[in-house]
Amino acid sequence: MTRNMITPTHLIRFFALLLIALPFASIYAQEDLTADQILEILTETMNPEQSQGLMKMTILTSSGQERTFEYETFSKGQGEKSLMKYLKPQRVKGQTILMLNDANDIWTYFPRTKRIRKLATHAKKQKVEGSDFSYEDMGASNTFIEEYDAMRLKDEKKEGRQCYKLELTRHPDSDAGYSRIILWVDKEQYVPLVIDYYHDDDHQLQEKQLICSNIQLIDEIYTPMECTMYNKLDNTHTSMEIVEITYAVDLPDDLFTEMGMQR
């Protein structure tokens, strides 16, 4: 009877064992994650409910010249709605891009002519202001889940971090801009560190590579503060730096309208 009694020593040992065992259990659980589960967590991490930020985009053109843009960005509904308003340079100041339905509906506003133009979805694959990011790269939040089949490959170390490696293959009936995508997702933070994009018509031809770095915890969300898109075909690259960002905002729905574009 005495031998079966739970003493304080037993409790201490139990919790000590638990503390040691939990991380292993956690790792074991992570090892069991399927490609779809990883993609879901990644999509949630990268698409918070709402966000407001100030971005700086620097394009290195094929002729070696630099072009720098600054814009405000707003998003709502886990990236389903987004709005970009250019602040610099003066040439494009006030130009606004509104993307709804994961960039399936795009409007652009030109303040100099006070004209709003709706772009058809074929424009989704085009460069935004001559950068190496397409409208689809910037505005489509759910594309990885909805337009691709995901397969988990052998984990790899990338950018000095342990990563899940996923291969996404485009659905046969999808019109997404890339035939195949390979992702390296940080195992702890669920942030993509490297993304290889393959050409629309040739799944062996790498078109672009995105490298994300300087990951910071902002409003409880891991955020890559710098991402650079390398265009392997044009030999250009565009870096995107987050100057300011917050996820603790309550943006009005009417911001994501034609009236909101002109505000």
Binding site: K118, L119, A120, T121, H122, A123, D175
Partner: peptide, 11 residues
């Protein structure tokens, strides 16, 4: 009217 038909922008 502005929209999209058979992959083409139309208005």
């Amino acid at each position: 009217i502005v929209g999209e038909l058979l992959g083409l922008g139309v208005w």
